[in-house]
Design a binder for these strands. Structure first.
Lengths: 285, 285
DNA sequence: GGTTAAGTGTTGTAAAATTACATATATTTT
DNA sequence: AAAATATATGTAATTTTACAACACTTAACC
């Protein structure tokens, strides 16, 4: 939790004078980080040691350390303390909030993701005879995206968003095949079935899902993100972005494993698009 | 540009002693921000004023101000100075780099996006008789995702990733229909055609694409992101994440316009999933 | 080889932060 | 309700820190 949030959360625990300090800082955080303890004390109409004590209460070593933490909280502009979108937010507010909460979600995802599992997943993927990506609902588009990345690698890739096709595909899988099941909650019954079926047919199942979910139990390898879905109650947002980044990471790991010759191949794939595009020269005329 | 990058870029302009300082800071940035000017000077084997001059060369007011800037650069952990994935990066390195570059891309997207256009786009979308999302290649999955969001709003939504279907759909569009064309480069000929056709049939065309691209010229409204695609040359990564966030923003704007009663509706959509899921109780047994 | 300029270090001082202590205010106990 | 205790806040002194001014060193150039 960053200092700014900490101040807001602790506002009730503060004493009268400390609260004055909190108010001043929250009102002009950008000014605060460039002020000395003396000027800040004056602004809040308290003594200097009070400011100092305030800093310590927030688990910082002292005023300079506090300013450091505050500066970090403000690193990306002045963030909304409350990132939840609210009824009366204007376009500016909700735009900023969604960007911020998505970035925050990616940040926690980065901290929580298990590098070791990623590495093993890349291992498995590079050795796969066939790779299948399955997702339902919002996760279906993530699966599509994954397909779009991995087909470039000249590996057989399939991607279905239709349960029946998924089932048939899963039943047909064999040893050496890799099935990637994508689900934020990990509670979608149909997808859990797919994982079970695939495993029964000796495929390796990678789950991009929540740790400790029913789906996770069915997987050989679980890449859990556990992003707090905090922007909107009714639509998956940040979770799905994190999933996509994870796909990017797996794809990158894949290309790195394959070495530099392989990258030539990617270039060819990209170049193949040329005919379908306006190139820059055409356009500048 | 953040201070850390600035140091790296200016490393040639530094004097011998200043370079020593730069090296020490780059080697242990986290330590640096918690050190006094004296200890840092000792670490670098230079005098205190040299450290001070070093700070000023980087356009900071002095050492404390420099530390503030440095702290902000390090706000999200110790970032890789070079975010480009390299041949010999291990899983840890490329994972961190991709997360970081994605977050950086979102940050620039946030700064560059035009709130006013977003607001107008939301306007148009809320009044649409029908909304169509079209994208090709990597942008197709973004279009799918958009469909997944907007269909919840009880508005007719279509989404095709097939050029022929797209064309037919575009030709059938009429006044009051909104067509959203998604393309990072904005140079995909087929998609430009779609935009043209839709406009000819009096539909409103929103482009999620690069400013100043051929596609942009064909659109009624252009939501440009202009994210530097810096992670990988051969695959779209950050750009597509930014597009998704933009979709989230439009969807959120949409729900806010519709007011609180409308949100009940969203809840119903979400609740409808319940039957297809393991609920938490089932699972805990 | 001397002159100039840029770079670097030493000393001293002003400012800033923190400690220790004193006073005021609230809280509990009798 | 008054005394006792604990908590909160401020004052003054101390210590730490950053910076300016000056002196010295090194490199560059004529």
């Amino acid at each position: 939790m960053n200092v700014l949030e900490k101040i807001v959360n602790n506002v009730t625990n503060f004493s009268k004078s400390e609260r004055k300090v909190a108010d001043v800082i929250l009102a002009n955080p950008q000014v605060s980080i460039h002020s000395s303890i003396a000027t800040l004390a004056k602004m809040a109409n308290v003594s200097e040691p009070t400011v100092n004590r305030f800093c310590r209460r927030l688990d910082t070593k002292g005023f300079p350390d506090f300013k450091l933490h505050l500066a970090q909280s403000l690193a990306n502009g002045t963030p909304y303390v409350n990132r939840h979108v609210e009824e009366d937010d204007g376009p500016e507010a909700y735009t900023a909030k969604i960007f911020e909460s998505t970035m925050a979600a990616l940040d926690t995802a980065r901290q929580r993701v298990d590098i070791n599992t990623i590495n093993r997943a890349v291992d498995v993927l590079t050795q796969a005879k066939k790779i299948s990506f399955f997702g339902l609902g919002a996760s279906a588009s993530v699966a599509h995206d994954a397909q779009n990345k991995f087909f470039r690698f000249n590996v057989p890739v399939v991607c279905f968003d239709d349960i029946v096709m998924q089932r048939m595909s899963a039943i047909n899988s064999t040893e050496g095949d890799v099935v990637v099941c994508i689900s934020h909650t990990g509670r979608t019954k149909n997808l859990c079935d797919i994982a079970t079926i695939a495993r029964e047919n000796d495929a390796t199942v990678i789950g991009i899902t929540s740790y400790d979910s029913p789906l996770a139990k069915e997987c050989t390898l679980v890449l859990s993100l556990d992003v707090p879905e905090d922007t909107d109650m009714y639509m998956p947002m940040a979770s799905r972005v994190a999933q996509l980044v994870l796909i990017d990471i797996l794809a990158t790991g894949f290309t790195l494993r394959r070495g530099s010759k392989f990258r030539e191949n990617l270039k060819k794939v990209k170049d193949s698009l040329r005919g379908s595009r306006f190139d820059r020269k055409d356009f500048n005329n």
